[in-house]
Design a protein around this nucleic acid. Structure first.
Lengths: 153, 153
DNA sequence: TTGTTTCCCATGAAATCCCATGTTATCCCA
DNA sequence: TGGGATAACATGGGATTTCATGGGAAACAA
């Protein structure tokens, strides 16, 4: 699972080290690298390994073929995703358009979120992390096991 | 299950022995170590094994993807967690920022809480334990077995 | 050619591994 | 049940490896 947050430098060639913990999490797949695409929710990137893409495929294929939402998801995820493979030192080269979408300049922050991860501009991420923590605290958020008896939505 | 409380020393390298009872509780997992992250509720650390994180992931993924609470929890738990693996002697190395968050300096108190545990500054923990006991006594708290029939969330 | 991408090697810092040791708890046998 | 033997645990320090990063050379494309 993808956990923790790390900020690595982007060099003049657009290369950035993927955190070691993320790399070991995708090792064993059919290709040695990750999938990355622009979030359709805001200025950051989404990413994951083969397992994530398999899951997404399965979820999308469960939808009606003529569902507009299905087509939008297919286009926004599979159509937009890139396969970025690791070099010998565990780096990927970020395509310019992806770096632009996320406003990346010199540094990139990798955020593990369990099954997937995100790549952020460090400053933007710091602001978002702060507000997320504040929200969690203010609202006394607690994880609660969904009731298996009632299963009320 | 994580139970009991133990205080161990933090050496110059930031290493601290995880209580043996905690270690045996997470052995057998895919990696030999624990997950630790800063509580968003106060100056202590939260921790658990793979099973806990799997549960949390399941609970979070049951929430709506655009729920602000979900994003806050994802960020504050998975984004903030570290995988700390045991060395040959059962120690972890506490990252500086985690030690700072919990005000740890030289010693750390591990508090077993069933499915998860907390790591405290020993002095802070002593104060908190005292007030917790007082609260329990004042309020005549009683443990009550939940009804298995209703299970209302 | 000219710019871009991929591969390879070098390096400093940081994390991890390995060995040694005292102390405490547990076991076993009389 | 006492007491010595044994194993488990917590701790300390040096050596080794991993990791992130930089730059050059070779392969490729325009």
């Amino acid at each position: 699972m993808f956990v923790s947050t790390a900020t690595n430098g982007i060099d003049a060639k657009g290369r950035v080290s993927v955190p070691a913990g993320f790399r070991s999490n995708v090792s064993g797949g059919p290709f040695d690298g990750i999938y990355v695409w622009p979030s359709f929710d805001g200025p950051w990137l989404e990413g994951g390994g083969q397992a994530l893409m398999d899951d997404y495929l399965e979820m999308i294929e469960a939808m009606d073929p003529y569902d507009e939402a299905r087509q939008a998801l297919e286009q926004s995820i599979f159509g937009a995703a890139r396969t970025l493979s690791f070099d010998a030192n565990g780096r990927i080269t970020l395509p310019k358009d992806l770096a632009e979408h996320a406003g990346l300049d010199g540094k990139a922050t990798f955020v593990g979120l369990g099954r997937r991860f995100e790549i952020w501009n460090p400053d933007s991420h710091a602001r978002r992390a702060t507000s997320a923590r504040a929200f969690a605290k203010e609202n006394k958020l607690k994880l609660r096991r969904p009731s298996r008896m009632t299963e009320a939505g």
